[in-house]
Simulated assay, not measured.
Amino acid sequence: MNAKSQVEASSLDTVKLIIAVGIIVGAILGFYYLDAYSQLLRVLGLLVMMGLAALLAYQTAMGKSVWDFASASKMEVRKVVWPSRQETVQTTLIVFVMVLFMGVVLWLFDMMLGAILRALTGSG
């Protein structure tokens, strides 16, 4: 790991994470408990509480390392060479033809085994 993501953990990190989880649980319970109110208000309240919990969790060493990991992952995704539309269509067609071919081969194999079984048991 890089030195940037190795942050010293403080003694209050566990307390902060427990409070953040408590905020999330409280927000979800409040969302369902206050069903008499408008759904828009409940969703907005839920989003605000989730943001508050995320902000609190970010203040911990684990939260900062998760944020650093997400940032590094975002940078890595930008480096990926994605296939062109033509490559994607060609690959999809190859997969489709192979699945169809294997389906026919397995169907013929099943028919052959069924005929052999009927011939051996004399039930055909």
Rank of each mutant, 00 (worst) to 15 (best):
V25E: 02
M49Q: 13
Q6D: 14
I94C: 06
G114S: 06
V43T: 04
Q59M: 05
R42L: 00
Y58G: 06
K79H: 05
M98R: 13
I28T: 09
V7L: 12
F109E: 15
M62E: 05
V77I: 12
F96L: 14
G30M: 01
A54K: 03
F31N: 00
Q86G: 07
K79P: 03
I23T: 00
Q90R: 06
S65T: 10
Y32T: 03
L34F: 02
D35W: 02
V104K: 13
W67D: 11
L44F: 04
M50L: 14
G22A: 01
V43Y: 05
W67T: 15
Y32W: 06
T88F: 13
I24L: 03
A61H: 07
A3K: 10
K64G: 02
V21M: 00
V80M: 13
Y32F: 12
M98K: 13
L100P: 05
Q39C: 01
M62G: 12
L113I: 15
S11T: 10
W82S: 05
Q6K: 14
G124Y: 06
G122K: 01
F31M: 00
L29G: 04
N2S: 12
A9L: 14
Q39G: 08
L41I: 02
V15D: 12
W107M: 14
M50T: 11
M49N: 07
Q86H: 08
L93H: 11
L52G: 04
T88D: 03
Q39F: 00
W82E: 10
Y37A: 10
K79L: 08
F69A: 11
I94K: 04
D35V: 00
M111Y: 12
F69L: 07
E76W: 15
A3M: 07
M75Q: 11
S11V: 15
R118F: 09
Y37I: 15
I28K: 04
V95H: 15
V99I: 09
Q86V: 10
D68F: 12
V77T: 07
G45N: 02
A36N: 05
I19K: 07
S10A: 11
M1Q: 11
G63Y: 00
I24N: 03
M1A: 08
V105H: 08
L34M: 05
G124I: 06
F101T: 11
V104M: 07
A119N: 12
Y58D: 08
A57Q: 01
M102P: 15
M102H: 11
V21I: 09
Q90F: 09
A57H: 03
L29P: 09
R118W: 09
S65R: 04
I28Y: 04
I24F: 01
A119D: 05
V99W: 03
I19L: 07
S10W: 08
E87I: 01
L120S: 10
L93M: 12
T121Q: 02
V43I: 15
D110Y: 07
L34C: 11
M62L: 09
S71M: 12
D68H: 13
Q6S: 11
I19Q: 02
L47D: 01
V89G: 06
